[in-house]
């Protein structure tokens, strides 16, 4: 696992395993092509900086295609529950 420069987490704008829809009209706000999570539909893909086993690296959801994934959001480090 190579170390990567810290950057911002960002959705890729596509669902896992597919390329983002390219709109030719550049005035269309980016949000218009943003996919949102829905049960029964493909998960929105994203890449985010991560901490993993002693290293600062990054994680991309679509790299896990072919595996079951448990994606857990939580309010914050050092919170109580």
């Amino acid at each position: 696992m190579s170390e990567k420069k810290a950057g911002c987490a960002r959705p890729t704008g596509a669902v896992v395993g597919e390329s983002a829809v390219q709109k030719s009209d550049e005035t269309t706000p980016k949000e218009a092509v943003m996919v949102t999570a829905k049960v029964g539909s493909k998960a929105p893909d994203f890449e985010a900086p991560s901490y993993y086993r002693g290293e600062f690296t990054s994680v991309k959801l679509s790299d896990y295609l072919g595996k079951w994934v448990l994606l857990c959001f939580y309010p914050g480090d050092f919170t109580f529950v």
């Binding site: 959801l61 079951w68 994606l71 857990c72 959001f73």
Partner: peptide, 30 residues
Amino acid sequence: NVGKVYGVFDEITGVELRGRFIIDPDGVIQ
């Protein structure tokens, strides 16, 4: 940004709610 597309980002508190997603090998949220 990721929390927003998953519908778990709370704009008022600026944190993410406890959202848990089970995603199958095809990338489908089950």
